[in-house]
């Protein structure tokens, strides 16, 4: 009826939202929109290969909420293990857009992460902070094997989806427990509980705080060139025991 809509600010962004949220609603098939739908939509509209959302918590530096595939999951694991990379920088700064991880500049900035991420299959990484006003919740990480920039349109889409991820995360967190019946435990729970279980065990084994125990686990995984959650699983299964500093195989930190 109204062919024009004067007086309303930024119809471009609203149109973008409408379009993206229609894809999102479609992905959710009429059910509650969750962070996995946001990740799937991000992959679909930005031309990346995989996506993940991690949050920052008091109890742990980053907690993976969802990864679309194994590559994304491994790269998130790598980021937590090494404590550096675009996905770390984006949690404290603005978006970090890396078109080509093999560039020397990347090796200078993230000397351990950059080559490791390339080996894990990432050519380009686009890390977008999840922020609501001044509050930082975490990061939406987009991974692509092919090097090259994210187009302007795709980036604008990704930024809207990062906003949406915030809304969905906050909504999920405030959902009463009774409403979770339609979700699998994996969906509302933690992706890698064994990392935290192992943290608790190492706290007792080494007599250290949770933060230090996690650092010890990360250092061990790094020194052995293994995935953190694999190392954690070994600790939980008592196939591996970290000894107090200086007495075990974890060479450095």
């Amino acid at each position: 009826m109204d062919e024009d809509n004067p007086g309303f600010g930024d119809p471009m962004t609203s149109d973008r939202r409408l379009r993206l949220w229609a894809v999102l609603a479609d992905a959710a098939r009429g059910g509650a929109v969750a962070v996995d739908h946001v990740c799937a939509t991000a992959v679909a509209v930005t031309g990346v290969d995989s996506a993940a959302v991690s949050v920052i918590l008091d109890a742990t530096p980053r907690e993976l909420m969802y990864a679309t595939d194994r590559t994304a999951s491994e790269l998130e694991d790598l980021t937590l293990t090494l404590g550096e990379g675009p996905c770390v920088d984006a949690t404290t700064g603005g978006p970090v857009l890396v078109a080509d991880l093999t560039e020397p500049e990347c090796r200078n900035r993230w000397p351990v992460f950059a080559p490791a991420a390339v080996l894990a299959g990432a050519g380009a990484i686009f890390a977008l902070p999840l922020r609501v006003g001044g509050i930082r919740l975490g990061v939406l990480d987009l991974y692509r094997a092919r090097v090259g920039d994210l187009g302007g349109e795709q980036l604008a889409d990704a930024l809207v989806l990062a906003d949406t991820a915030c809304a969905v995360l906050l909504d999920e967190a405030t959902r009463p427990g009774g409403d979770r019946d339609d979700h699998s435990p994996e969906r509302t729970g933690l992706r890698h509980p064994e990392v935290h279980q192992a943290t608790g065990m190492v706290m007792v084994q080494m007599g250290v705080s949770a933060a230090v125990a996690l650092i010890r686990l990360r250092a061990y995984a790094y020194s052995q060139d293994r995935r953190l959650h694999d190392v954690a699983a070994d600790v939980v299964a008592r196939r591996l025991r970290l000894e107090p500093a200086g007495t075990s195989g974890d060479r450095n930190g």
Binding site: V55, L57, D58, A59, T60, E63, A173, T174, G189, L190, P193, V195, H196, Q197, A198, T199, G200, M201, V202, M203, V204, A210, V236
Partner: peptide
């Protein structure tokens, strides 16, 4: 909500 889940897992490990 998320911290609680992490802390419960850590306490289980302890």
């Amino acid at each position: 909500a998320l911290n609680s889940r992490v802390l419960i897992e850590q306490a289980k490990g302890i």
